[in-house]
Simulated assay, not measured.
Amino acid sequence: MKPLVEPASELTSDERRRYARQLLLPAIGEEGQLRLKAARVLLVGAGGLGSPALLYLAAAGVGTIGVIDDDVVDETNLHRQVVHGTADVGRPKVDSAADAVARANPLITVIKHNERLCPGNAEHLFAAYDLVVDGSDNFTTRYLVNDACVLTGRPWVWGAVLRFEGQVAVFWPGHGPVYRDLFPEPPAPGTVPSCNEAGVLGAVCAAIGAAMATETVKLITGAGRSLLGRVLIHDALAMTWCTLHLSQDPQREPVTTIAALPEIDAAQLARELQDGEIALVDVREPTEHAQHAIPGAQLIPLTKVLADPGRFDHSVRLVLHCAGGTRSAEALRAVLAAGHPDAVHLQGGIAAWDRLN
């Protein structure tokens, strides 16, 4: 495969010293290092997969790395999200991640996007980068990344983890299969647990994140054979790696637009709460709700919503919210599928509410 990025003009003496061992690699060399320097990579999510991918991409010399994440660091993140430390709890993840890159390699430019990836910003953001690395942990974002990459023509490196297992693949519209060829439709609500529900070993995130970083470097420099058209599967308990071949589905519906879920911003929610004519439901976990909640919000964790999405009164406007908008989007899909006529979710979650208040 041809290199994705044209090379920069030159390496500085500091860059030559820092990347000396990488420059020795015949598949990279000086030209490959110049391509890495010129590359612009967007990382979706600074979590379990984004953390190792970010550190290795920065260490490898990727010149500009954008990080989009609207979440804040929680203590439960720390066992696997290694760009964050105890002192970062409560900070925006993009700030903590940028600081970690600065410590690892001050020659790298980090662009912080402290916002949630959504249909309204995805295409514009993706068009500003050469490729996308998706470290998200939910199906809503993965399908959004797929569709935005298809519409912008950008390749993307995807990874996923759960418990002791992980998967990695490369998708590139026009050059090979995409995510919707692997998973044409999202799974039925409640059938696939999240890491919040089922757990994950931090070292599995490291293994998958490192593989994602490797695939990114290969795409940028043209080194080796990419995972385009293949899915790499890791079983940490058996300590095995296997590869499945993936083909394009000729019957797959073309992506022509990005479908948006109905949502409400924090300011509008504040006005509607004053009117007292809505049901506000917090789909986070009980521990999160106990620590901090929007006044008037009823706690119904995501698992319970997914188990019975038709439980809500259809005569009352329903507003779902979580920490940043990811879990509430999943809940909203299930509620709408169950026939609720007037349900939305809070754009940006409780983090957006806090910024307003």
Rank of each mutant, 00 (worst) to 15 (best):
R103H: 12
N138G: 12
T326H: 13
R284S: 11
A98V: 10
K37M: 10
H84E: 05
V231C: 12
A97I: 05
L227D: 01
I65V: 14
L336K: 04
Q248S: 14
V281I: 15
P254N: 10
A127R: 15
Q268G: 03
A38V: 03
A206F: 08
V168R: 02
A97W: 08
G349N: 04
L131H: 00
D134F: 02
L24Q: 12
Q251T: 15
V44L: 13
I278G: 06
K2V: 08
V72P: 00
T191F: 06
L34P: 08
D235Y: 11
T221P: 08
A338Y: 07
A98Y: 04
L11R: 11
G199C: 12
I108C: 07
P52Q: 03
V204P: 00
A337R: 12
D74N: 14
E215T: 11
Q274A: 14
P3S: 15
L125W: 02
T64K: 13
G176Q: 06
P295D: 12
H234G: 02
I220T: 11
I68V: 15
G325C: 13
I350G: 00
I65Y: 02
H175K: 15
F139L: 12
G176K: 00
P173E: 09
R154V: 01
H345A: 08
V101L: 05
S136P: 01
L23S: 12
L42W: 07
L227P: 05
D130S: 09
L237N: 06
F183R: 00
A331V: 04
D235L: 13
V5D: 03
L144W: 04
A169I: 05
A236R: 10
A351T: 12
M239K: 05
W241I: 11
S226E: 01
Q291E: 14
E123S: 13
R154K: 15
P254K: 09
A38P: 00
Q81P: 05
G224Q: 08
V192L: 10
L151E: 10
T287Y: 15
T191N: 09
E31W: 02
V83Q: 05
T152S: 13
G85F: 01
A279W: 08
H314M: 08
E285T: 10
P26K: 11
V41N: 02
L244P: 01
N114R: 11
V89I: 15
I278M: 08
H175D: 02
V132W: 08
R252W: 07
Q291T: 11
L36E: 02
I28N: 02
L273E: 07
D130G: 02
A8R: 01
K2W: 01
L34A: 00
E330N: 06
V168S: 05
F139P: 01
F164T: 13
D235N: 14
L78S: 07
E330H: 03
C242G: 09
N146R: 00
D74T: 09
W172C: 07
G120P: 03
Y56W: 09
E115L: 14
G174R: 06
L299T: 04
D313V: 11
V168N: 10
A307K: 12
Q33W: 06
F164W: 14
I65G: 02
A334P: 06
S315G: 14
K218I: 04
A338P: 07
R116E: 08
R17P: 00
D99M: 09
L201H: 06
K304I: 07
I111F: 00
N77A: 08
A343Q: 00
D134H: 00
P119L: 04
T243F: 08
Y56F: 13
V83M: 09
G45E: 12
G222A: 09
N357C: 09
T140I: 10
